[in-house]
């Protein structure tokens, strides 16, 4: 049992991981073909897993409706939304436009899906304002630095801010755009690169842990 549940999966992970790692250093067509095959297999697995996801979604919302759980009414919209896209897709044979005219699928995509996605994305603007308000409450020295940097950036991006800057700090001889340029190119890039270096090293070490079977939590422990 341990062989099937532990050792074989670990061997698969090790062999696949090492081969994929080696393929980075081997430019031969054999290596390219191997990566392509792996990608195809990944797509096949994802397609089957998507079916599992759909079943999970339907069961979860079906139980909510039957049990009249809190907010069960919203669950009905899961099925309505599903049908609103799948039925037109079936009748339109998957095409959004025919002879320059929108098919039912094209109509659903344009006037339901795109509109709803756009609405959700637009909400982001309001959240950014409330987040900015929260970040402007100076609670620590780091928050103060963040506030100063953000304030200068906001000031420099609007014409009125540039006028205020020139009036108040014009005597320094530095335009607000030059200060913004410096903030974006020096401290911001330095911080970003620091994070990127840490992330890259962490990614290498995590990959090694998985390839060599030291991290095997994803398949349960002994």
């Amino acid at each position: 049992m341990k062989l099937i549940k532990k050792q074989i999966p670990l061997a698969i992970v090790f062999i696949t991981g090492v081969l994929t790692l080696i393929s980075y250093y081997v430019p031969h067509k054999v290596s390219v073909d191997y990566i392509e095959t792996m990608n195809k297999w990944e797509n096949i697995v994802v397609a089957f897993a998507f079916l599992l996801g759909l079943i999970s979604l339907f069961f979860s919302h079906y139980h909510k409706i039957t049990r009249k759980a809190d907010g069960w009414g919203y669950s009905i919209f899961v099925f309505i939304g599903f049908l609103a896209m799948v039925v037109p897709s079936y009748t339109s044979h998957g095409k959004q436009m025919v002879d320059g005219m929108l098919t039912p699928l094209g109509w659903s995509y344009k006037y339901i899906y795109t509109a709803l996605s756009g609405t959700m994305f637009a909400v982001l603007a309001f959240y950014i304002v409330s987040t900015a308000y929260r970040s402007f409450r100076i609670k620590s020295a780091q928050a103060f630095v963040l506030f100063v940097a953000a304030f200068i950036l906001i000031l420099g991006k609007v014409p009125l801010g540039q006028i205020i800057w020139d009036y108040a700090l014009g005597w320094t001889g530095q335009g607000v755009s030059a200060v913004i340029e410096w903030i974006m190119q020096v401290p911001a890039v330095a911080g970003k690169r620091g994070i990127m270096i840490g992330i890259s090293i962490g990614a290498i070490v995590t990959s090694l842990k998985i390839i060599f079977g030291i991290e095997k939590q994803y398949m349960g422990k002994d």
Binding site: V46, A49, L54, S56, Q217, Y218, M219, G220
Partner: peptide, 20 residues
């Protein structure tokens, strides 16, 4: 979950944790 594959893996992870 956003990704069904991730969901499948996470199901196993959570189940194992509850058992442990």
């Amino acid at each position: 979950h956003y990704d069904p594959v991730v969901m499948t893996v996470c199901k196993e992870v959570v189940k194992q944790s509850y058992m442990e």
